[in-house]
Amino acid sequence: MTYLSELFASRELFYNLTMRDVKGKYRRTVLGQLWSLINPLATMLVYTLVFSFIFRARPSEGDPSGLDIYPLWLMTGLLPWMFFTRVVNGGMSSVIGNGGLIKKVYFPRMHLPFSVAGSVGYTWAIEMGVLTVALTVFGGMPLIWVPVALVFMVMLALFALGLAMLLAIGNVYFRDLQHFTTIALQMWMYLTPIIYPIHLVEDQAERHGQWILDVYKLNPMERFVSVFRELLYDNRWPDLSDSLVCVAWTVVMFTLGFLVFKRSEKRLAELL
């Protein structure tokens, strides 16, 4: 408990480290914070061109919102995914990247991965805001679902943080881990129904055996993505079992990451 209270007492450090990243990132660029929107927009264009126009991925119509716009459907899944990968990658390298600081000053080290989630989350919140506006403009009703979506955003942040903390410690022992993670995340993205609708997987499962879908659904990000889609694109309550699985993964992953990080934290200065 004392650990948590120390962490809470130094929350200003979390804020300052977060703002260091937020402010430092786009310094001396003409477009500044706008870059954080241009990036997802460019990705959206490319994926829409390739997967909607060329490969003809056809997600089912939003129910009950009636939306049928691939780029918007894509972004409701892609933005959470991009947040997830940025937190995992950034949080993982935050410990090694701040090695100089860790060796010279005492402060609760957990603020390093936390502040990565903070600064990436700041960008993500803006992106999600813009997406919500776009969904509304094109005829959806996402606004009333925003409070529920916020709860799931916090959950996804904690889930990603848990994994990031776990990997950050692992990375101190084995530097290979960060290169491995980059590859793993890339594969993970294609194993999650972000750019293609899940019914394509369901079709294959019907043809080749139900186990395909069962294995596919073990992926926690599949649940998160579908929850965000149901909330913002379809505008309805997310599936109860999906929500519960999200909660369970969040609790398990965050607790695990927290405990592992806390246990190794004191030794970081000598390991780096």
Binding site: L13, Y15, N16, K23, R27
Partner: peptide, 14 residues
């Protein structure tokens, strides 16, 4: 990239 002023606040909180 941050100014001296911002760094004073950041460093102080560290």
């Amino acid at each position: 990239e941050l100014s001296g002023r911002e760094n004073v606040y950041l460093n102080g909180s560290i």
